[in-house]
Design a protein around this nucleic acid. Structure first.
Length: 185
DNA sequence: CATTTGATGTCCT
DNA sequence: GGACATCAAATGC
């Protein structure tokens, strides 16, 4: 993955990432769900300025930002333009299924990485990875094998900025944490 | 199927 | 003290 890939607006990177494969220490899968957050976004951790927790978000693009959510889950973000990031919300598991199952307990493959907390548990993400560059081990990337059909919607689990359509999914994937709402007919 | 609940870190007022 | 980018298990249809 070219470091310049991340040095763009988070919403652009979030959409482009769909279909890429992410591996962490050889374990991972196809990115099927992302969300974008930026400095002007009231739902973003960077909205209120730098703190100890979100320091990585104010660092250089192309690095990881890991934070704890609801006191117990880890969430993996990819830092883009200054104070913006992409939250990885779901993968279609392809590599290291046994390691993921061991970390998550016996769980059906569809739920191994369907959600930011589950994904982080399956890939053994924690504060150790916070601030690490994404273009070097343990991180590895593969380009999409075929053209990707990306669908957009509103983000999940937030109470401010709810209208911003910065959630991106691989169209038709059954590995997302929650299906996109049906288009109005 | 939907809704509720408990787990409890970090930042905010 | 309250809010929060969550999850899994328990409960009520």
């Amino acid at each position: 993955m070219d470091p310049a890939f991340f040095a763009r607006p988070a919403a652009v990177v979030a959409a482009d990432l769909i279909g890429h494969t992410l591996l962490v220490a050889g374990v991972g899968g196809i990115v099927v769900e992302t969300e974008a957050y930026d400095r002007e976004d009231p739902a973003s951790h960077s909205f209120a300025g730098p703190t100890r927790r979100n320091a990585s978000m104010f660092g250089p693009p192309g690095h990881a930002y890991v934070y704890r959510s609801y006191g117990l889950h880890w969430c993996l973000n990819l830092v883009c333009e200054p104070a913006s990031a992409v939250l990885l919300r779901a993968l279609e598991p392809t590599d290291g299924l046994d390691a993921m199952r061991a970390r998550r307990g016996l769980s059906e493959p569809r739920l191994l990485c369907a959600g930011p907390g589950r994904l982080s548990q399956a890939l053994a993400i924690n504060l150790v990875q916070d601030g690490l560059p994404l273009d070097r081990p343990p991180f590895a990337w593969r380009e999409p094998a075929a053209p990707v059909n990306v669908a957009a919607g509103t983000r999940i689990g937030i109470s401010r900025g709810v209208e911003t359509p910065w959630r991106f999914v691989l169209a038709g994937s059954r590995f997302v944490s929650k299906p996109l709402p049906r288009p109005r007919d």
